[in-house]
Amino acid sequence: MNKPVHPAPVAVTLTPDDAFDLQARVERGEFTSLDEAVSAELAELNYRRAAEVMGGSEKLERFLDALEAEDDPSTDVDAEGFFAELRAGLKERLDASRG
């Protein structure tokens, strides 16, 4: 997901009960600030929505694991070696077809 380099401040209006709950959680040390608390709650909401779209949190986690594995550099192909082998194989086939 691409995020803005310099995000603009955003005002969020909460119900008094929600504001009280978040402030209490900050005071208990669960969060260091209201900003962090709101961000965490939004992240949790986004996760729940994604899990709902995917058909459950297990399916979402499997999907996220698969995405993470795709980005794993250890699974990348050595391009130079791959193309050298490909060229050698093609040259062998060409030589065999001439011979």
Rank of each mutant, 00 (worst) to 15 (best):
M54C: 07
E36A: 14
R28N: 10
R48W: 10
L45M: 02
L34C: 10
M54L: 10
N46E: 06
E41T: 01
E36K: 02
F31Q: 03
R62G: 09
D35Q: 14
R62T: 14
R62Q: 13
A50D: 15
E61K: 12
G29I: 03
M54T: 09
E61H: 11
F63A: 02
S39Y: 12
S39I: 07
L34N: 13
D35L: 13
D35P: 15
L45N: 04
A43E: 06
N46P: 00
F31M: 11
E44D: 08
M54I: 06
E52A: 11
E52I: 04
F63L: 08
A43H: 12
E44R: 02
E61V: 10
K59T: 09
Y47W: 02
L45G: 06
L42N: 05
E27R: 11
K59Q: 14
L45P: 01
E44A: 05
K59H: 12
V38W: 15
E44H: 03
G55P: 12
A43Q: 04
R48L: 12
G56E: 11
A50E: 14
R48P: 00
E41L: 03
E44P: 00
A40F: 05
G55H: 03
S39A: 11
E36Y: 08
T32W: 03
E27D: 08
S39Q: 14
M54S: 08
E61R: 10
Y47S: 00
E44N: 01
A43W: 10
E36W: 04
Y47E: 06
E61N: 09
D35K: 09
E36H: 14
R62A: 09
S39V: 09
R28I: 15
E30G: 02
K59P: 05
E41W: 10
R49P: 01
A37E: 11
V53C: 05
R28H: 12
L42C: 11
R62E: 15
E52S: 00
F31I: 06
A37P: 13
